[in-house]
Amino acid sequence: MQKDTVSWRILKDKIFKGFVILLSFVSILPLLFILFYIVKNGITSINWEFLTHLPKHIGEAGGGISNALVGTGILLIISCILAVPLGILAGIYLSEHRKGRLSYLTRLCVEVLQGIPSIVIGIIAYLWVVLSMGTFSALSGGVALGIMMLPVIVRTTEETLKLVPFELKEASLALGVPYHRTILKVILPAAMSGIVTGILLSVARVTGETAPLLFTAFGSPFMNFNIFKPISALPLLIFNYATSPYPEWHSIAWGASFVLVIFVLILNIITKLVTKRWKVQF
């Protein structure tokens, strides 16, 4: 009888283990399907022309998405310029002043900001930038994406800075190093891997955002380097082409999706490498 119980328990263990393995496999299935589908439909459109040429008119064969690639690049640069310094400084403030009303308020706002739907942020950027400047522009798109990046950067900066031991700060201050230099030259370098990870993750997060760009960057069929004019972006192009009635455009949308997914994938891999390589041991 005793023996039976033990073997029954072992069996239960095995069933449970099998169940866990099965479910974790199921959880990666959606990603595999998505990747498979995008690769299958997208890879045929990828060639040098696709990456370096402008889109052609309906009925003409070929054409590329270079305007969208450049547009996404410019939008990301603008949003990084806006969000990275602000996010890191706010993160420093939060980790340096853990208690206190202002930091409580800041933390709350950052959390709420993180939860605001991206379409709403798009509308805000439309009201603030597009309406006041009178035109759709890359700048307004960058503002919208920057607002979306901000909470991620603030939180990751704060969390990594909190992990830097207080002894390190003391060591620097005890050498007579002024506070601002201690933060910039001792604390920030020690937390660099975490901060860069946060920035890359936030970039990966906003690269595929369509909603905030719909009425800010707006999209453009032309190559544009002027940040005060409408600009194309990968997700916008995918949205416009995928909803069009033309099969040629559908295949371009698939190709663009492929490029977008690969870009985000590479960003995620770089993030992992950065975390591993630059990790500072305390």
């Binding site: 002894e167 390190l168 003391e170 060591a171 620097s172 050498l175 007579g176 001792v186 020690a190 500072v280």
Partner: peptide, 18 residues
Amino acid sequence: IVRRKIGMVFQKPNPFPT
């Protein structure tokens, strides 16, 4: 200035890890 003239060594060794 005071801290530059009076050095300090702490309980736990704390060299700069970077």
